[in-house]
Design a protein around this nucleic acid. Structure first.
Lengths: 167, 167
DNA sequence: TTTTATTTTCAAAAACTATTGAAAGTTTAA
DNA sequence: TTAAACTTTCAATAGTTTTTGAAAATAAAA
């Protein structure tokens, strides 16, 4: 496999993976392209490389910046914007985890508290309460584990401790 | 909020969550319905409760059985099949993690080895190799962490050790 | 065997999501 | 100012995924 084939396969694979996880295929493909690019890319270059429209490129690049995975660079004497991705894959993974927690786990915690207000003594009511309470426990556990991971990432000692565990 | 409203909100929330994570809305809703149901349900009852067609119910119930989240029960003297969900939410979470690893992480490992065959001395080639190698490390780390989690789940000592960590 | 109850399949339709491209908006330079 | 370079928006279109419902298949009972 040569570099060109490898790049295409990587972009394709990352795109499929993204769409399995509720992220648009194009957004993941732009991310893949920037991950393997040694230099910053303009909108025009992204359009050209992935054969997609200007509007599509613009919307998805902005979404990637919202996710904190892609950044702008301004070049002196150039009016255009250039884009580059965070290249450290561990940081990328942590950033995705953080964002999904913010966007999904946090709102879920609110909903669960609402659902815990339901009181009903029927059998259906009891099963409902049990399921909701159990779900709440698991969410709490997930939340704490994510905290631990993020803190480990930002903390040398923890990081090394976790590496020991997961070696 | 009464039980009926709570049930609807739970089914709705679980459905939205599922579709954010690449699982069809209806599949997640059927799962939610079975999670809070104290008794096994027939196809007919699921159709009625969620207002969906027979074909849709059948396909999604089978998908849930493939995921190992829902099971069949046969009642003596009844020709119909009845369904129920695993209720322990920690087991549910572990089962989802296991399945997604099998369906996505494992194939990804294969693709990465292919991509590591690419050799190219250009700057673009070097960045490609670095990104792929780094991604490979992160995937390996994730894989080991999942193993640890699954083993912890099946192992009293580890389980308690992890609880200490994530308390 | 035939009938009846139930499950499964799958082509067509509906619903949903992503993409285009041209027009409007913005910013900088002349 | 005005023009040029570039970015953003959004209605229309294309593409994808999900759902329906009726027909085919299967299994149990008569």
């Amino acid at each position: 496999m040569n570099l060109q084939e490898g790049k295409e396969k990587f972009i394709q694979t990352w795109g499929t993976l993204g769409s399995n996880w509720g992220i648009s295929r194009t957004m993941a493909q732009i991310h893949a392209l920037l991950l393997i690019s040694p230099k910053v890319l303009s909108t025009e270059e992204i359009m050209e490389e992935l054969q997609i429209s200007r509007g599509n490129t613009n919307m998805n690049v902005r979404a990637l910046m919202d996710w904190g995975l892609v950044f702008k660079e301004f070049k002196t004497g150039e009016r255009r914007e250039f884009f580059f991705a965070e290249k450290d894959m561990w940081k990328v993974a942590m950033q995705i985890v953080k964002e999904r927690r913010k966007r999904e786990l946090d709102p879920l915690v609110g909903t669960i508290s609402d659902l815990q207000q339901v009181k009903d003594s029927s059998e259906a009511g009891k099963q409902f309460e049990t399921t909701v309470a159990d779900l709440n426990k698991v969410i709490g556990k997930a939340d704490k584990t994510i905290d631990l991971l993020i803190r480990a990432d930002e903390n040398w000692f923890m990081n090394n401790f976790l590496k020991l565990l997961t070696k």
